[in-house]
Simulated scan of single mutants.
Amino acid sequence: MLSHLRPALVLLVALTAITGLAYPLAVTGIAEVIFPADAAGSLIERDGKVVGSSLIGQNFASDGYFHGRPSATTAPDPADASKTIPAPYNAANSSGSNLGPTSAALAERVKGDLEKLKAENPRQPVPVDLVTASGSGLDPDISPEAALFQVPRVAKARNVSEDTLRALVDGHVQDRLLGLLGEPRVNVLALNLALDDLARR
């Protein structure tokens, strides 16, 4: 029996060492050499402090900032651990809402968001990504149309000309990857940091 058990144990230890230790360390080491910023989490620093990641959205609620997509992430209710409460952009609980097109709760939320956004900018159609949550709830990007839609509100809150903000948005549009993959997008955190830099000038 030992003659059958020994090869199985040796194989288990060898494969655990190779696939559980050597391979992950090699891939991590190569990634840190070739893509150091990406391997470290694509962190964004400001004045020596980490303010976020370019890969994870943040909740900007002030009228003086551009807002990201709605986020359906939740967190445990401090008053009752068996329930959850909305916690936008909770990276510890990435998820969509799982609400389907016939959901009354989803229709009510979208209707409320639409009314609020139409009041902000009645002259423009509301971009769909400003009223729909992403599958992860952590999407850091919005469409250029969604960013431009918010220009009047941000300009009014910051007392900055709309033309200045449109130019700022245009300067932060990232094109399709390799000109083919994905859609043009604007990273909300990067745009809001540039907005703060604009205010310091």
Rank of each mutant, 00 (worst) to 15 (best):
S42V: 05
L43T: 09
L43C: 12
I44T: 04
K49M: 13
K49L: 13
V50S: 12
V51S: 13
G52Y: 10
S54C: 10
S54H: 00
I56G: 13
G57Y: 12
N59Y: 00
N59V: 11
F60P: 07
S62Y: 00
G64C: 06
Y65F: 13
H67L: 02
G68Q: 09
S71M: 03
S71V: 07
S71T: 12
S71W: 00
D77R: 06
A81F: 08
A81D: 02
A87K: 06
P88N: 12
N93W: 02
S94G: 15
G96F: 01
G96E: 09
N98H: 09
L99G: 03
P101F: 04
T102C: 08
T102S: 13
S103C: 03
S103N: 12
S103V: 07
A104Q: 12
A107E: 10
E108C: 02
E108I: 01
R109A: 14
V110R: 07
V110M: 06
K111G: 05
K111V: 03
K111I: 01
G112V: 03
G112M: 10
D113L: 15
D113T: 07
K118T: 13
E120D: 14
E120H: 09
R123L: 13
L130G: 15
S136R: 01
L138Q: 06
L138W: 02
D139V: 05
P140L: 07
E145L: 13
A146E: 09
A146C: 05
A146F: 06
A147D: 00
A157H: 07
R158C: 14
D163E: 12
T164E: 08
